[in-house]
């Protein structure tokens, strides 16, 4: 990696006429400056100007953003909402947990008034959800599962076995064959991690 250029925070990289600022950089007085210590990366992404970014060896901390698909674990439920811990943003694991809520109205897109949270999630379930808002004074991250691809991906039955989805709203225990209600996600191959 020796031919790659090292840079330190505050170093001037180039003018905005030559490049588009990417991650790890900031703009000032028409110039691109580095904001991280790392390597300078110039990438052409189809546009006229290459994107200038600074990369570090170790992944920097990521925060859940509006529109991001997150993987979370349900910690508690009540009739109005389910509380979750966000574990992954996209496919990057978070260093520490962020709390989020899935409100009853955001569980599914249709028949919102008939949703019952305990028929959609149970504590311990692993859920795919999308961030709709960063929340306000009272709440944390607000998440939604109102899409076919979003919802419960891993759930355990009362007997403790991992359940198999049988429809979009039911999962079955392979040991006792008991059915339990869940808001099941139709997992898309692109969300599956290698």
């Amino acid at each position: 990696m020796s031919p790659m250029k090292l840079c330190v925070p505050g170093e001037r990289l180039c003018s905005t006429e030559d490049c588009i600022p990417g991650t790890g950089t900031y703009l000032r007085h028409g110039y691109i400056f580095a904001s991280l210590a790392g390597y300078v990366l110039r990438k052409n992404e189809g546009e006229e100007l290459p994107v200038m970014s600074v990369v570090k060896e170790t992944e920097t901390q990521l925060l859940p953003d509006v529109g991001a698909i997150v993987t979370c674990k349900v910690t508690s439920i009540n009739p109005r909402f389910a509380k979750v811990h966000i574990l992954y943003v996209g496919s990057t694991p978070l260093k520490d947990r962020f709390r989020g809520t899935i409100r009853k109205e955001d569980v599914r897109a249709t028949e919102k008034d008939k949703v019952e949270t305990y028929k959609s999630f149970r504590p311990g379930d692993i859920v795919l959800a999308k961030v709709i808002s960063l929340g306000d004074v009272q709440s944390n991250y607000l998440l939604t599962t109102a899409e076919n691809e979003l919802g419960v991906v891993v759930a355990h039955s009362e007997a403790g076995a991992q359940m198999v989805p049988v429809s979009w709203c039911e999962m079955q225990c392979p040991r006792t064959h008991a059915k339990e209600f869940r808001k099941v996600a139709r997992v898309q191959p692109e969300y599956l991690q290698a």
Binding site: P9, G24, F33, S35, L36, Q61
Partner: peptide, 11 residues
């Protein structure tokens, strides 16, 4: 802060 990879304007 630099070691933590938190973006800064300058040292």
């Amino acid at each position: 802060v630099i070691d933590a990879g938190i973006p800064m304007r300058d040292y």
